[in-house]
């Protein structure tokens, strides 16, 4: 028996919104430690890895590991039936071919349940090596979203250049060029407004705007985003979920043929 109850149900809705652009279907791996998911987008350019720790749920029971393969478009349809202040419970029997979502209003006067068919997905699990990144940038997630949106008007790819002074995002296209520079700024009133750079050596890497824009669908999940970069390895874009886990995106760099 698997059962996970989240009073802050809106969080689950936001997590789903953050991945459904990239993934049509995915397997939610449920274990005693929590729920995790790892999947590549259909073109195998990016990878989503997320983790929701069991202690972040208000009630969590997982007698034995279960893999819940879901069509995320269908899951999103069901999640749209939950209000933002609803309490959400996910339930599945061991070896079940369906999952049940229960939505309760805070006053418990309305309780809805939706049963969805599960899928048997042939998922390829990738081992992600531990990497010492040359540059780690922490910045407001809204700012990152804005920069990705703005520069995708200019070109198809963004060059992210990082030095210890700051980080520069650049795009070039038929109409011309655009550059956005952010200076390191840790001395701000609010922690979430800080731009902090940890640099071992400067990097300059090129990434596709389309994927970066998809990653920014996670913006409502966290006030800050962390970009980890090294030459010739995938970029990591991480949104930390307070007291709960993370949503991470890995994006393969553009490479010289």
């Amino acid at each position: 028996m698997f059962e996970a109850r989240l009073v802050q149900g809106a969080l689950l809705k936001k997590v789903l919104e953050s991945i459904k652009d990239l993934l049509n279907e995915a397997t939610w791996e449920c274990a005693a430690t929590g729920i995790s998911l790892q999947a590549m987008d259909s073109s195998h350019v990016s990878l989503v890895a997320l983790n929701l720790r069991s202690d972040g749920f208000d009630k969590y029971r997982c007698d034995r590991n279960v893999s819940l393969g879901m069509n995320l478009t269908n899951m999103a349809k069901i999640m749209k039936c939950a209000s933002n202040d609803d309490v959400i419970t996910i339930k599945a029997q061991d070896d079940a071919d369906t999952v049940t979502f229960v939505f309760e209003t805070p006053n418990q006067e309305k309780i809805s349940d939706y049963e969805m068919k599960l899928m048997n997905l042939d998922t390829e699990h990738l081992g992600i090596p531990d990497t010492d990144y040359s540059c780690i940038v922490k910045m407001p997630s809204v700012e990152f979203q804005r920069i990705c949106r703005d520069l995708s008007q200019i070109g198809d790819s963004v060059v992210i250049s990082c030095t210890k002074e700051g980080v520069k995002f650049s795009a070039a296209g038929d109409l011309g060029t655009g550059n956005v520079k952010l200076a390191q700024n840790a001395n701000v009133d609010k922690e979430e407004e800080a731009v902090v750079i940890e640099m071992q050596e400067p990097v300059s890497l090129t990434f596709a705007c389309r994927y970066l824009n998809s990653f920014t669908k996670a913006t409502p999940l966290a006030p800050q985003v962390q970009l980890s970069m090294s030459s010739d390895v995938p970029l990591v874009v991480e949104y930390k979920l307070e007291d709960m886990g993370y949503v991470r995106y890995y994006l393969a760099p553009k490479i010289e043929d």
């Binding site: 590549m40 073109s43 195998h44 350019v45 990016s46 990878l47 390829e124 699990h125 990738l126 081992g127 992600i128 090596p129 790819s157 090129t206 596709a208 390895v233 995938p234 890995y250 994006l251 393969a252 760099p253 553009k254 490479i255 010289e256 043929d257």
Partner: peptide
């Protein structure tokens, strides 16, 4: 020419 790398070229099958 600049091409798009695939994530599976960087991460190995577990």
């Amino acid at each position: 020419m600049v091409g798009q790398g695939k994530i599976s070229e960087f991460f190995i099958r577990a």
